[in-house]
Design a protein around this nucleic acid. Structure first.
Lengths: 210, 210, 210, 210
DNA sequence: AATGAATGAGATTTCATTCAT
DNA sequence: CATGAATGAAATCTCATTCAT
């Protein structure tokens, strides 16, 4: 009996995931603001109504896609943290910026949620949870890189700085995607270096006897 | 004859400025995406058609508003640079972030132009020119703060980092404007400190003997 | 065997009644046009499909709810007819109008059936039967009030007149429910008086010698 | 100068009237709830947008159509009042009921506004004004028919009673339009007679000495 | 140069009903 | 019989832009 129930629930989740994944796919092809419900439905092989059976509206669907991306990033970060090379911190930062370059939608949605608001109740909780997960990884990476003080604030600052690269240069008009990626990564290295070196002088301040 | 011509041109510019300023005013009241041409026209006391006589479309108007803001920021930065206190760099950074907090539109438009594109030809030139002006000031501030190497890249990195604060936390759902401002400024200080201290170890590392 | 059959039938009827009653309850809470099948199903604790197993569609369900209300009114009228006070006729009319005020749905559905049609076959028979029951009571009340001639037509006229009060003033925009009830009852009294007094002069005119 | 302005205003009103009249025409052909904006636009030879330039929404358009009908009725009543035959009162009532039979839309809209609400602000004022105009005529007709006391309340009662005929029998399922009209008029006569005769006995009651 | 009415494609969302399980 | 996910047509309303006056 329980299995039957479970099966139904699983099927439901599968369908939901199908829709979300289709949407993600479409978002990567064009500005996500330009993707319509009809398109998503068609691409997913379901009817428009079905989408509304699974999501209360476009906002919820967007959030779902966003959260999935956030999870993906989290996994990526977890991997990058394991890196034991001397350059691991720089690589960690690059992993994030590379992801953003490849998945502008994630970033655009974050902008949407943060800048334009429109998120309430449970949605905010989900967003917060997701953000905290990210921040945890960043904090870990910072610790590994030798930053010991004030790590949470530093994590926020680093997160901001890396996001800022995107907001400032992604799709900068007149630049090719490759030029943009190069520039992004150059800035990423710069920021990574700044944070790392910053940590040293910091520790000097903290531990002047050495 | 020339004076008559000049008068006409001046009047034209006045009209244009009137429209742009009205738009800015409206943008500060609500999400700029929600402001319609009709609203702007009504608020400015002109007809819709007039707006199209002065601007080729909404995009151009947005750009104009944006550029005006950019000029304002540039002036603000020029002032901040003159500050000779030991905290001048931190203040410089704060001035920028404070401005963004007070003028979200500027930031939202930058996001729009950078993330969604849609700028071509002359518009890109204007944007570039404006951005360069900003970057010049940031570079100057960095130099004054003791950063001597690689200042252009550092300027880009700092610009990114400060913008990132906004994209990451502005209007974070569930926070009050004041909470957000406080958090923004805390991060600003963090980043300013990181860049400043980074500069020291940098120069030490790079050129210790000399 | 028969008992088993009966049981099944009874259960079926119970289910049907449950659905109809739930619907009535919902209709009293909001405009019945705004109540969806899903809502009814949820409130009744059954599935959407079950509703369609019992009713061929929303129309039939509406009719069922309507007929139940009509029966309720009939019972109310039966009671009111027994009233032997000199004011019994006025009270009879008031009982009907009060019911309408308390059960707008009944009236709205009548409007729906009468004005927009869409009833066919058996449904019309049921509606007619129900209406005749009502009319019988009204006729009886009129006779008791001394109207002897042309009672069926008078019953129709009175029925119309009382319904008209609702269509003309129920939820009149800008009036509170209590104001509306007061006005309704004032008009009811007026109409009751008109019909009663009319009856006298009528008989006098028709049969002056007596 | 003034004429140019006037011309524009007139043209605007003409357009608005064109839309309203087209809508009325369509409403008489099918249930007015089934008429879509697109249909109206197409039939009127304008674009959908134009309709929204003239009306804030369907509600406003409906109200406009309704008010126009109300004016038409008022004019009709004014004519009927002039009738000096002994049957003038009956004719007056018949004129109204005939109009309702020919223009169900008017009645359906009245039902909509009264029963379902949704009218606010200026709209309510317009509705009230229109209703008062109607009531004035009814009152006049009643006075002419010899009813001297309590004429306003009587007007409301008569208005209700006549409307009630429609709500109770218009499009009664299974009846042909002609049958319905006949029945309506029979009831109209009945009600007219009731009100007239009622007036007599009333005066008798009030002034028994005479 | 100013006006502002007209345009019309297009988007989101709703919901009664069906039907396979 | 009960279930409830899927369906998909259809409806209202928006708004940047045009262009004749």
């Amino acid at each position: 009996m329980r299995t039957l129930e479970q099966l139904k629930i699983e099927e439901r989740e599968t369908r939901r995931k199908l829709i979300a994944d289709t949407a993600r796919e479409l978002f990567s092809q064009k500005q996500f603001r330009e993707v319509t419900v009809r398109e998503i439905a068609k691409a997913a092989g379901v009817s428009v109504g079905t989408i509304y059976n699974h999501y209360s509206g476009l906002g919820e669907l967007f959030l779902d896609v966003f959260l999935e991306s956030a999870q993906e990033i989290t996994r990526l970060m977890d991997k990058a943290i394991e890196d034991e090379s001397p350059e691991s911190f720089r690589r960690f930062c690059r992993a994030y910026v590379n992801y953003l370059n490849d998945n502008m939608t994630f970033f655009q949605m974050m902008s949407l949620f943060i800048l334009e608001g429109g998120l309430y109740g449970e949605a905010v909780d989900k967003l917060n949870h997701s953000m905290r997960s990210l921040m945890d990884r960043i904090e870990t990476a910072l610790r590994k890189a030798g930053i010991q003080k004030d790590t949470r604030a530093s994590a926020h600052a680093l997160f901001s700085a890396l996001n800022g690269i995107m907001i400032s240069y992604a799709r900068y008009p007149g630049r090719t995607p490759e030029e943009i990626r190069q520039h992004s990564l150059r800035l990423t290295d710069k920021i990574a270096a700044t944070f790392e070196s910053g940590s040293h002088s910091y520790s000097e301040n903290i531990d002047p006897q050495r």
